[in-house]
Design a protein around this nucleic acid. Structure first.
Length: 438
DNA sequence: CTGGGGACGGGGCCC
DNA sequence: AGGGCCCCGTCCCCA
């Protein structure tokens, strides 16, 4: 006989112990703030802690201390509260942070919920737009959008069977899965438009924080500097797949005459005065004209980098950036001497290769530098080409993320770095960041 | 401190 | 409509 409430009460007790600092044997330091928790609970909840604690499991007499600077104490509070309660307090403001922290901590359930939250936010926005057209003046004016909600893990074994359903009007959202992935969706406080992420501010903040990442990064994972979200998204663990992130794009109605703002009631526009369709980012104030542009823009929030450079392993959020990178770094397309900046031709200069990097030097600079011996023979050596679509067998193919790990091996004959594709995605979680242990 | 190289996001155009 | 490409402005890193 199974008592369904046992798990809930057990977790409740553990949470109570945590609050009273009873039997806590792990200290987590997040940007100076100390969190106390139980190793067992952390071990069971996070792949990151599993790795961390299994490494330090031999010394059980001293409390383990983990230090994080990759996310804020507030974000970790949300994560830790979820670990001890099964309730994930997501808002439009914190969902990106929480998702990236969960990615860092290898908490796939949390990542899934964050993704669902993002998608449902978009769905809600779409419904709001539809409602907007059908409502009267008063209804529109009171039509605030509430996207702050609480996801809670459903312990109730007798609850509805797993299914996927979202009804923002009713304020409930049930998602299929096991006990950890049954979630309830509760409407909470009104979204504050002023708290919406300003892209610029977010980026500035992200850059500041990314400079203070305290954890060691895996040596074989490229480190991206532009945002901490991107930093973490570049890691293999919990990396967001492109297919899963093909979120439904919301459309936004915008009229320069009426000044309708997302999530805020405003003057009414009639269908006759139908404004041009715009697409608004749900996470910042950015508005774009095309759906594809919003899809592209969303990657700067999700940190998704589906385009790996197969020459150096660096990942890009956009194909054209990868293309540009490849041409600049690996193809020596610029007919300019890297040293003297003079224009060079095939006669007056040579392509020089350093590792995977290629550039041009004029004959004078080549002779001056005495590096003539390492210049490559483009006739004998296959050039680094940026292959066209369909050229899947090329050594330097690029494009859609195949969610593969890449193994970089040296080609001794040519000093080229060749990446071998390994399709086992699970291993990525295991070889993730080294935890910081004291 | 400064300038260059590279990354990155946004916009626009073309196919 | 979507993808690819190019241009531009901004930012960061590094020599």
């Amino acid at each position: 006989m199974e008592i369904s409430s046992h798990q809930f009460h057990l977790l409740q007790q553990l949470n109570e112990q945590r609050r009273q600092d009873l039997f806590c044997d792990c200290n987590i330091l997040v940007e100076g703030k100390v969190f106390k928790a139980h190793r067992n609970v952390l071990f069971a909840s996070s792949g990151y802690f599993k790795m961390l604690l299994s490494q330090s499991s031999k010394e059980t007499t001293q409390p383990t201390t983990a230090t994080f600077q990759a996310f804020s104490p507030d974000t970790f509070t949300v994560i830790l509260d979820f670990v001890y309660s099964g309730k994930l307090s997501l808002t439009g403001q914190n969902v990106i942070e929480v998702m990236s922290a969960a990615s860092y901590l290898q908490m796939t359930d949390v990542i899934s919920v964050c993704k669902t939250f993002i998608k449902s936010s978009l769905d809600i926005s779409e419904k709001e737009k539809d409602r907007y057209f059908s409502l009267s003046d008063k209804e529109v004016n009171s039509n605030g959008v509430d996207r702050s909600c609480l996801y809670s893990a459903g312990w109730r074994a007798e609850s509805s069977p797993p299914h996927s359903h979202l009804n923002p009007d009713q304020g409930t959202c049930m998602m299929g899965g096991n006990a950890w992935s049954n979630f309830n969706y509760y409407p909470a406080s009104q979204r504050n438009a002023q708290q919406q992420l300003s892209k610029h501010d977010q980026r500035q903040d992200s850059i500041k924080k990314s400079r203070h990442l305290g954890l060691q990064q895996p040596s074989d994972i490229p480190h991206y500097k532009s945002s901490k979200l991107e930093d973490r998204a570049a890691e293999p663990a919990g990396h967001i797949t492109q297919s899963e992130e093909q979120v439904q794009i919301e459309t936004e109605v915008e009229s320069p005459h009426v000044g309708y703002q997302y999530g805020q009631g405003s003057d009414v526009i009639s269908r006759n005065d139908l404004p041009r369709m715009r697409f608004k980012c749900p996470f910042c104030t950015h508005v774009v004209k095309r759906k594809a542009d919003l899809k592209r823009h969303l990657r700067c929030h999700t940190g998704e980098r589906p385009y790996p450079c197969e020459a150096c392993g660096k990942r890009f959020s956009r194909l054209d950036h990868l293309s540009s990178h490849f041409r600049t770094i690996h193809q020596a397309c610029k007919p300019i001497c890297r040293k003297c900046k003079r224009h060079v031709t095939e006669l007056t200069g040579q392509v020089v290769q350093e590792g995977t990097r290629r550039y041009r030097l004029c004959n004078e600079c080549l002779a001056e530098a005495g590096i003539d011996s390492i210049r490559i023979d483009l006739e004998a050596e296959a050039p680094l080409e940026f292959p066209a679509d369909g050229d899947k067998d090329s050594r330097w193919h690029y494009g859609e993320d195949n969610r593969s790990d890449v193994e970089i091996v040296e080609d001794g004959s040519s000093d080229l770095v060749i990446q071998q594709v390994d399709d086992s995605e699970d291993e990525a979680d295991e070889k993730d960041v080294k935890p910081s242990i004291r």
